[in-house]
Nucleic acid binder design. Structure first.
Lengths: 220, 220
DNA sequence: GCTCACTTGTTAGCGGCTTAACAGGTTCTA
DNA sequence: TAGAACCTGTTAAGCCGCTAACAAGTGAGC
């Protein structure tokens, strides 16, 4: 049995989607705790305020291994480092935004992404009135420049914050520019070639689900 | 056996969370199809472009019943009506936004929510420079006015788009004002009393998960 | 040095979601 | 009218993820 614990973001075929979505949540909370000066923490103290069972978190960690030694509590700094490794956040990851409307600008100025290792390199639009204006220290460029920009800068991640009608076209252009992962805020189902990951961020889904739960809860 | 099919947003104890999150997705696509003039559609044509198995969608519908008659394809209009009923989107649902920064304004101006039956009633902030300015035809009010506003208008849903450090306080104020559902964009784990639903919308989770999948895919 | 209270790592069992298959109904064509 | 090609509603099987329990390790107090 050579080495059963996958260390980094290598392979690890069988890590459940649900776990992958929890890792960033752990990381966020750990950073908040570090900012408060917390050095050590038990799995229960870490997990339960997030409404996650301590055992489940330990189980999640167990897919990767090397988080602590048995018997000892976790060290906040070690966990942050380990999770960052696992999620490949070590080296700054460049990305761009298509669409410089309110949503695009909100994303661009959400500084938290930079603390997490992402680096906004460009923002694109087609509205001639705002071209050249500055968002987050970057000029708004014309969408036509995007594919060449992407390939010359070697960027693999792009956010789509344009109206639904334009989204598929932007998606195609991003793929042509070499993008491998698309963060999609437009309310359409994009079709992308095999190997390109599309992460939908449909805000209205969250709002409707919330509404459903509230209304359902009020009937009980 | 009295009536095994739950009709509206009544009770329906056993509808899985995963199903609840898919219903809005179906609804969005159906509205897009209606806009294109589609009247009838089969489960396969409806589901597969969303990367959802047709059988699963029929199974989701089956929790509620009365979507079509066996043998016949679905009628787009009927499905929209039925899903809207189930999700209690019939009567316009009022809500407010706390935080009039870029993100708050982006949410306020995202007109899609109104098509889905939500009605923005107020937006609040503490920054004196922007108080009184108009966002989406509404004046930015001071946060102090919020609790009274909520209860006098009978509002049960509030979005939090303020910095993490202020979020818990805003959450408490919303609860005091009678809010039953909180749409939380601030990257902290809010604690709310039993009966209040908190729907987290942590954007960085999506970005990190996307990055993970891209990096993991590039190693294979 | 010993015990106790605490911790994490690990594995097995259970429950719930997804999947697939089938039964029953409709429509169209010949 | 009979048959074929669809379609949805429904049920059962399979699988994946969650839960819980346990083993093993640590450190404090005495």
């Amino acid at each position: 049995m050579p080495d059963k614990t996958p260390r980094n973001c290598d392979a690890l075929a069988k890590v459940p989607e649900a776990t992958i979505l929890r890792l960033p949540v752990y990381l966020n909370r750990l950073k908040a705790l570090r900012a408060r000066g917390v050095v050590q923490i038990s799995s229960r103290e870490l997990a339960e305020p997030m409404n996650i069972k301590a055992g489940q978190m330990r189980h999640d960690f167990h897919y990767f291994g090397n988080f602590s030694r048995p018997g000892r509590p976790y060290e906040v700094e070690v966990l942050i480092k380990r999770l960052s490794e696992i999620m490949c956040l070590g080296n700054s990851t460049p990305y761009v935004i298509a669409g410089a409307g309110l949503l695009g600008q909100a994303i661009a100025n959400y500084s938290r992404f930079e603390d997490d290792g992402f680096n906004l390199r460009g923002i694109f639009d087609i509205n001639p009135r705002i071209l050249g204006m500055t968002v987050h220290d970057l000029p708004i460029r014309h969408m036509e420049e995007m594919p060449a920009f992407l390939s010359s800068e070697g960027i693999h991640i792009g956010a789509i914050a344009v109206p639904p009608s334009a989204a598929q076209d932007i998606c195609d252009q991003m793929v042509a520019g070499g993008v491998r992962g698309i963060w999609n805020f437009a309310l359409v189902d994009l079709s992308a070639p095999e190997g390109v990951v599309v992460q939908d961020e449909f805000l209205s889904v969250g709002l409707m689900a919330l509404n459903y739960k509230v209304k359902a809860g009020m009937r009980e």
